[in-house]
Design a protein around this nucleic acid. Structure first.
Lengths: 229, 229
DNA sequence: GCATATTTGTCCGTATGTATA
DNA sequence: CTATACATACGGACAAATATG
């Protein structure tokens, strides 16, 4: 069990070359989590990771702190850190705040920069192309870039960062469901329609379409989550 | 310079009695920062604080991490931690995301709980009363509670938490301007009018009033900030 | 329910690298 | 350029909490 990813993480030592050690360790762990190597609910032992990565306990604990604040890890007093396992209420809450942030960003469409508008189209193009290849994980990534691009329309660093963190949390849910096609395919066409409305400058219709997307996606994800977890 | 608050912090040792040590230390430092004991731009030395509080470096660094993520402290690699000093762009960004979050929360008024609605009125009552006493710092606190209550209308833990963090950041700006009356008095009447619209259930008019509030407050704060810093 | 082993929380001392006077 | 001050990272230690038998 431990040996499986123990060997893999040992290979990551080569990547420990730039930036503060704790941040570099956090980068590695973040990647492993989003890849699904450490699934939600998994406990990350200080001792095992310390040995596998060849770093000190204090440094590892700093990395844990960083990821805890990103919402990827959860600290339980005297029990250790666990990969965050989201509840159904968490999913509802994630969609509640995404509704507010992304729709609010959309409303800023008239004053958004041409470059920011272009990125919305680029993301949906990538999703279309990945769907044509049948590469559903890539479709999922492109869909996330699409929503990040929508958030960027707000022209606010904090909005962009908040949505980035929310999408990272949402990825934890996707990892539990673990059927990329079912999760991402249904929304490619809807996103394309939304992007077209944006390109036409019809922010009002785009916002309504985005609201419908959130309603559908939330209901479908909750159903899939209940079935899986 | 160091001795001034060194003696004061030594008295805080008595408060180190409950919860995780790092969190308790973070609580103390957060209070000192919001009180204006440590003004924005101040560097917090590990060694001095460690000695004043009688704790270890590792524990202190964990507390620093907590406050850094809240946006109150800023970590500069190999230089230490500083009380965050916000730029004018930060102020504009804070208002951009507050516009989106608080207006989005307002739009949820119809499905908000009666208890959440009541808290909006309670906050503005407190502001009125403090203004009558001429207690402008208390007016500022009540105004923040008012906006927090608006955010709570969204019924989302993450929205509430995000706005809480944003208001804490904004307090850092107020500390630099340091004229509580000028900062808070102008908005008591406007907030009262807004609360009345909410009580009447007119979410649409309330949202317009809130937008105007943000426009005024942002412009006034930027002017005061440029004059002070 | 109890005793044991494991793991975390906290702290210390030190060595090394980095920025600043 | 040198010296000083400081942050970064390490390893070891012990107490406290938890998990295990």
């Amino acid at each position: 069990m431990i040996e499986e990813w123990g060997a893999r993480l040992a290979g990551d030592r080569a990547l420990l070359d730039r930036g503060s050690t704790a941040e570099r360790v956090a980068d590695i762990l973040r990647q492993r989590i989003t890849e699904g190597v450490f699934l939600p609910g998994t406990r990350l032992s200080e001792e095992n990771l310390r040995e596998a990565l060849g770093i000190s306990r204090n440094t590892l604990r700093e990395a844990f702190r960083l990821l805890s604040h990103e919402g990827l890890l959860e600290h339980q007093l005297n029990r250790g850190v666990f990969v965050r396992l989201l509840s159904e209420d968490d999913i509802r809450d994630l969609y509640a705040i995404r509704r507010i942030l992304e729709c609010g960003a959309l409303r800023n469409l008239p004053s958004a920069s041409p470059a920011d508008r272009a990125r919305v189209g680029a993301a949906i193009d990538a999703a279309d192309e990945a769907a044509a290849r049948g590469d559903w994980p890539a479709v999922g990534t492109a869909n996330m870039r699409f929503h990040q691009a929508i958030a960027d329309l707000a022209g606010s660093r904090r909005v962009a960062e908040a949505v980035r963190a929310l999408l990272a949390e949402l990825r934890l849910v996707f990892l539990v469901v673990a059927d990329p096609r079912q999760l991402h395919e249904p929304y490619v066409a809807a996103n394309r329609a939304l992007a077209d409305l944006l390109a036409a400058g019809d922010a009002r219709a785009a916002e309504e379409a985005l609201q419908r997307y959130f309603d559908d996606a939330e209901a479908q994800l909750l159903a899939a989550y209940a079935a899986a977890g």
